[in-house]
């Protein structure tokens, strides 16, 4: 589904991603961990081209995004993203947040978009908030709406960039529950998170990044039982306290 080959990303002089090679299979659940500033966000933002790699190839669903004149907006309709800070549209109701892009970008019929929106809102347990505005919701509820908004694009991939990091502790679980529910679908998920319980439950593969490199990867059990790299051990000892 996603193929990254020899990818580098620089911000000015800062070399943020170094020679990244990464293949993500259709339906795979990949969890990315690593210290702050290690390039996790930049890596997943390259997957929907919110960041443009300096060199290398990014191929998503058979389309090379790094090719000149690549149909970026077309690909993005299949690659949804859930942000740390939710980024719901504050001037739109919850329902409108879910239907805006399907109607305006994908050309879906309004009634159809609303029907599927209600289904997804129900799925994240917020059907009763359809007419509310985002600011009237708690952080956890906003993030669940953001996930429903992503789903209503019927994407093949969902990218999550630390979806629970901005939440009060008591709201984290409700969002994780929704994400665990999603993982039973065939959808491809790439999740930047430090929630190791979630990783253990859901991930097919965990990837540890540090200083712009993929340092170590493997099934979640590997990270709990015998991480090999010293940097990985140090990092895990901090977050698994």
């Amino acid at each position: 589904m996603i193929k990254i080959e020899g990818m580098n990303k620089h911000f000015g002089k800062l070399h943020v991603l170094k020679d990244i090679d990464l293949h993500i299979k259709t339906g795979e659940k990949l969890v990315v961990i690593g210290p702050s500033g290690s390039g996790k966000s930049t890596l997943i933002r390259c997957m929907n081209f919110l960041e443009k790699p300096t060199s290398g190839k990014v191929i998503v669903d058979g389309v090379e995004l790094t090719a000149p004149k690549a149909p970026i907006t077309k690909v993005r309709q299949n690659v949804a993203m859930v942000f740390q800070s939710f980024n719901l549209y504050p001037h739109k109701t919850v329902l409108e947040n879910l239907t805006l892009a399907p109607i305006k970008v994908q050309g879906v019929d309004k009634k159809q978009a609303e029907e599927s929106a209600m289904m997804y809102l129900d799925r994240v347990g917020l059907a009763n908030k359809a007419d509310a505005y985002p600011t009237q919701l708690s952080g956890g509820q906003q993030q669940r709406v953001a996930i429903a908004r992503a789903l209503n694009m019927h994407p093949k991939v969902i990218l999550f960039d630390e979806p629970t990091s901005a939440l009060d502790p008591e709201m984290i679980q409700e969002v994780l529950d929704v994400m665990v529910g999603l993982s039973h679908d065939n959808i491809t998920m790439v999740v930047v998170t430090h929630e190791m319980g979630f990783a253990r439950q859901v991930a097919d593969r965990v990837l540890f990044m540090d200083e712009g490199e993929i340092v170590e990867q493997g099934p979640p059990e590997h990270f709990f039982t015998n991480p090999t790299n010293d940097r990985t051990k140090l990092f895990l000892s901090k977050i698994l306290r």
């Binding site: 907006t73 949804a80 942000f83 980024n87 549209y89 001037h91 892009a101 970008v105 908004r149």
Partner: peptide, 27 residues
């Protein structure tokens, strides 16, 4: 209007002008 609004719009496949029209300018 925060950068996050543009990013959310782009991530859903909006073009720059669509993002302006439907998301940024109304706010």
């Amino acid at each position: 209007i925060t950068k996050g609004q543009f990013e959310a719009a782009y991530s859903q496949g909006f073009t720059y002008w669509q993002a302006m029209r439907y998301i940024v300018l109304p706010q």
